[in-house]
Simulated scan of single mutants.
Amino acid sequence: MPLAVELDRSAVLTGGAPAPAPLLLLLHGFGSDERDLPGLTAHLPAALGWASLPGPFPASPYPGAAGRAWFPITTPGSPDPEPVHAATAAILEWLDQTVPADRPVVPLGFSQGGLMVTQLLRARPERFAAGVVLSGFVLAGEQPHDDELGEVPVFYGRGDADGVIATDAVERTGAWLPAHTKATVRLYPGVPHSVSAAELADVATFLEAALTA
């Protein structure tokens, strides 16, 4: 039986512009939670709504980790696909039950959340207007809708001093995104595993263009 997980709907945070404004779906990184990314929205277009979701797994089994996770860490950069797909299904279920089908949605994720952005696009490309991957990566292997992503705009940004994401995952992502999506790729000199002011400015410009097109 496939693994099934649920989001804690009572923990979901929302704000910004109401429907029918486009909705940013904020997906935090490992060991963080739904409170982490809403602060970024102050640097993004004001005419957007946002919803920040909690990962379905606890990060606490891992030494020194608290908060939530979208999937357990097994081999860094190469997670077990089963919990990744389970988390993807949980997000899509929340989306289907909460957000009108005609409201444009843009998932924006950091680190593990960045992988979840690409998983959402790969699972249901027609549902999303664009995607934003911040210091994230893509899951290895082909998936059924990979060939349907060619017109989906995706922003992929990372710092060249990021030592957290495994090298093979960075290389995989750098090759996969331009080959499968309408990718905008940015590398930020000296930036570690974090989001810089320059990157946020680039994301704002990207979102304005992607949602106007």
Rank of each mutant, 00 (worst) to 15 (best):
P2I: 06
L3T: 07
L3H: 04
L3S: 01
A4Y: 00
A4P: 00
D8G: 06
S10H: 15
A11P: 04
V12P: 00
V12L: 09
T14P: 01
G15S: 12
G16H: 10
G16T: 03
A17D: 05
P18I: 12
A21M: 05
L23H: 00
L23K: 02
L24W: 01
L26T: 03
L27H: 02
H28M: 05
H28A: 05
H28Q: 07
G29M: 08
G31N: 06
E34H: 14
D36E: 13
D36T: 10
L37G: 05
P38N: 06
A42K: 14
H43M: 11
L44C: 04
L48S: 05
W50M: 06
A51Q: 09
S52C: 13
S52M: 11
S52K: 06
L53N: 05
P54M: 06
P54K: 04
G55T: 08
G55D: 03
P56S: 12
F57E: 03
P58F: 09
P58R: 10
A59E: 03
S60C: 01
S60V: 09
P63C: 08
G64V: 13
A65T: 04
A65F: 14
A66D: 15
A69I: 08
W70I: 07
F71C: 10
P72Q: 12
T75C: 08
P76M: 11
G77V: 01
G77M: 01
D80Q: 12
V84M: 09
A86Y: 07
A87H: 03
T88M: 07
A90H: 11
I91G: 00
L92N: 04
L92Y: 00
L92G: 00
E93K: 15
L95I: 08
D96S: 14
D96I: 01
T98M: 01
A101H: 10
D102A: 15
V106M: 05
V106T: 09
P107H: 07
L108N: 01
F110N: 00
L115E: 03
L115F: 02
M116Y: 02
L120T: 02
L121Q: 00
R124Q: 13
E126I: 00
R127A: 14
R127F: 11
R127E: 01
A129C: 11
G131D: 04
G131H: 08
S135L: 09
F137H: 09
G141V: 09
E142K: 15
Q143E: 15
Q143V: 15
D147T: 13
G150W: 04
E151L: 12
E151W: 10
V154M: 04
R158K: 05
R158H: 13
R158Y: 15
G159H: 06
G159Y: 05
G159T: 08
D160N: 15
D162Q: 09
G163W: 07
A166R: 10
A166K: 07
V170H: 08
V170Y: 09
V170F: 06
E171C: 09
G174A: 11
A175C: 07
W176A: 11
L177N: 04
H180A: 13
H180I: 06
H180Q: 09
L187T: 15
L187P: 00
Y188L: 07
G190P: 03
H193K: 03
V195W: 09
A197C: 02
A198H: 12
A201E: 14
V203Y: 06
V203G: 04
A204M: 03
A204Q: 10
T205G: 13
F206K: 02
L207T: 03
A209L: 14
A210K: 07
L211P: 03
